[in-house]
Design a protein around this nucleic acid. Structure first.
Length: 291
DNA sequence: TAAGCGTGGCC
DNA sequence: TGGCCAAGCTT
């Protein structure tokens, strides 16, 4: 499969069109790649870039981060969103330091066992950091395959076994080529085969795209999102945590109560943050990021 | 399995 | 303007 026109065209396109992202450079450590993958979960590259630079400057190895309280990771996470990722990345650093001699594992199953690392991230780290052959199936790749192979504009909401089988069937046989292929298809999805306005004129495989060849039929499946935010517990959680991040000292309850009027919802959100380990209720009644 | 989980930019 | 979208994971 390594020399079929499909993969050859995508790989050639990547050679000249790939973005120069710091975690893709030859000198990037496995740890720095792992950090980038966690940060990039549901968060755009442009917002990850400065956060990743600052993070790697402060904690260049897992051991550096493992020495810190988890609350420092949450504070450093700033406004990247989904702050549980910061907690899990800290837990990753501890596990790697204590159980893997400070080295990011290269085994897919071991990576999968680490907190916050699921199927995609385990494959991505094994492939991008260690040059192994794994199917990479993120939102970009799912969209590219849905269009070029299946002929539909958008993939199903939840990943199917058919998608996994397709991604594995397309994987080039040689590990180094497969690793290049994975990041190349992702990049194609991110830059050309985008969700809203795909730039088919710039696509190296437009001539083989089932969706384009079918005349780009409109999506006719079920509604695909519904991710409202305003007024949700998530918004309240965000406001509460922002107060704690901004304060070098523990804060009094009044400071938290000021961020949201609905007391029932506010208490529910605060309890959930405590339950998640993102907030530490102190004995004196104040609240802090976890120690 | 589907819902919950932040944040910000874009059209 | 506001819904949609962004390198998912966990329960």
């Amino acid at each position: 499969m390594s020399d079929n026109p499909y993969s050859t065209a995508v790989l050639a396109w990547y050679e000249t069109n790939a973005r120069d992202l710091p975690w893709r450079r030859p000198e990037a450590s496995a740890w720095s790649i792992l950090v980038s993958e966690i940060m990039l979960q549901q968060t755009p590259v442009v917002r990850v870039l400065p956060a990743w630079e600052a993070w790697m400057e402060r904690w260049p190895t897992p051991a550096h981060l493992a020495k810190e309280p988890s609350g420092e990771a949450v504070r450093m996470w700033n406004r990247l969103g989904y702050p549980r990722r910061a907690l899990r990345l800290h837990a990753c650093a501890v596990a790697i330091t204590e159980e893997h001699d400070g080295e990011v594992p290269d085994d897919h199953a071991t990576l999968l066992s680490l907190p916050g690392i699921g199927a995609y991230t385990a494959a991505a780290v094994a492939s991008f950091a260690h040059g192994q052959r794994h199917a990479i199936l993120d939102t970009n790749v799912r969209r590219v395959l849905a269009r070029t192979e299946t002929g539909i504009e958008y993939p199903p909401k939840t990943q199917t076994k058919a998608e996994t089988a397709l991604a594995e069937a397309l994987l080039p046989p040689t590990a180094s080529v497969a690793a290049r292929w994975g990041v190349a298809v992702m990049e194609l999805g991110a830059l050309v085969c985008t969700a809203r306005s795909p730039r088919c004129a710039d696509c190296p495989i437009a001539g083989q795209c089932a969706w384009k060849l079918a005349g780009k039929p409109a999506y006719d499946g079920p509604p695909r999102r519904g991710q409202t935010y305003a007024g949700t517990d998530r918004q309240v959680r965000g406001k509460l945590l922002a107060v704690l991040r901004a304060s070098p000292e523990p804060v009094v309850k009044d400071a938290l109560d000021a961020v949201w009027d609905d007391g029932v919802q506010r208490e529910r959100a605060l309890d959930a943050l405590v339950s998640d380990g993102l907030v530490d209720p102190l004995d004196d009644g104040r609240y802090a990021l976890p120690g």
